[in-house]
Design a protein around this nucleic acid. Structure first.
Lengths: 234, 234
DNA sequence: GTTACCAGGTTGTCTGATGACTTGACCCTG
DNA sequence: CAGGGTCAAGTCATCAGACAACCTGGTAAC
């Protein structure tokens, strides 16, 4: 993967408008200047302005009506919780990210312990077996690891927690890959990680929500430590 | 606010492409057909195709390079956790949403109890005073209520939890407003809600993370019940 | 085998046009 | 006077065409 190139005009114009909204220059309910005017102001073609506005419509920041204009929407219309690319995060931000991930995952694990059924357990066991094999063979255990966490979230019976967890874990995957690229570390699954997975599974299998929560949280804290991310105080 | 009009072409084309990606028709790393081809396939102008692609670039689903083409990105590049408009959620989905909100907010409250400083407490006290006034006068307490939760999240010292909580609370605000529009309920702040806010504040002020977590969770469960949303089993 | 050049293809941006929609002003009728 | 209809101006939505900038693969020359 090469270095990312500079943002193109629509992305840049969108960023400026978004900043102006955040700064209060355009308040919710306010109308943006017409596209033709913005085209003059930014010194770009109307197509670029339209693409920028289209981007911000995706975000839920703007809405437009033919013949009427482009309106700034209330914050409640924001359609997404966003995170910037993790390779730009400071150590402090990474620690906060891991803390959030730990919160979400451990509570999801607690719910999984309460709601798991036989099929859930079977799936989780299958992931454990594949991870155990990866440990033994010293091969890449990333696939079954991701699968384990996905099935755990599935067992929580809460679709939103599942989706949030998948989003956060995909972010974490980036952190891990970046860390690997900067060291000689391989994708090999450490035996210690596998042991932690097994403990989480035992707690879930036993229907012990409190243990699942505690062990899951420790697992995430250990994961952060393994990446050289210190935990937050108090 | 009138009924939302039908999605325009760029939004519709973007949705089709996103679905095709989700279905595996275009896998991560794969190249989409050229814009000119997509223009033919969808029977729309190239501008519409470009706007659709621009939308999906905002999502982190696609990336494009001049002269090279449009690539599908790996799920890890997704930049957002999204939720559809809450007024379209079933009762089951609302219950799951409130459960997620409860998880996030109660853990944030626990962290706030551990990390709050004098300035945090002062701000929270100010919100309580304004809410108490609203209760006494029977006026709209929504503003200070939202402000209370924002300051609580700020006290957690975790920027991501704060942002996630604000996103979820803005969603919840929609649920509440929708419920009000369908009943004769006013924006008046019930005394019971205020009491719960006060209890949360006491726990945070005392630095009692466990109490803050427990009371916060109960507060959110009560909030759901007040909206007629039943809690999830086990 | 390596390097340079070129043609073809693709995205990025611009320009101009037309259609669909909104709003406000003005006029007419009851 | 109030209400309804019409029209012009303004605005977004979409289309079409053109050119610039970039990428890739093939070929020719050394």
């Amino acid at each position: 993967m090469t270095l990312p190139d500079a943002p193109r005009l629509p992305e840049r114009v969108a960023a400026v408008i978004a900043r102006q909204i955040a700064e209060g220059r355009y308040r919710p309910g306010a109308k943006l200047p017409p596209e033709s005017r913005l085209s003059e102001v930014f010194g770009v073609s109307r197509s670029v302005v339209r693409e920028a506005i289209s981007r911000l419509k995706t975000e839920g920041l703007l809405d437009s009506r033919q013949g009427k204009g482009v309106m700034v929407l209330a914050p409640a219309a924001r359609t997404a919780f966003r995170m910037e690319a993790v390779n730009r995060l400071s150590q402090q931000e990474l620690a906060q990210f891991y803390e959030m991930r730990s919160v979400v995952e451990s509570e999801t694990a607690a719910l999984a312990a309460r709601r798991r059924n036989a099929a859930d357990l079977k799936r989780l066991r299958g992931c454990l077996a594949r991870m155990a094999q990866a440990v033994e063979e010293g091969t890449d255990g990333t696939g079954p690891d991701v699968e384990f966490h996905r099935n755990l979230a599935e067992a929580s019976g809460n679709r939103y927690l599942k989706e949030l967890m998948e989003f956060l874990n995909a972010r974490a995957g980036q952190v891990i890959r970046t860390a690997r690229d900067h060291s000689s570390r391989s994708a090999k699954l450490p035996a210690q990680v596998q042991r932690e997975h097994e403990e989480i599974f035992e707690a879930i299998s036993a229907g012990d929500a409190e243990a699942a929560r505690r062990i899951s949280r420790r697992h995430l804290q250990n994961a952060a430590r393994r990446l050289g991310i210190s935990t937050l105080g108090a």
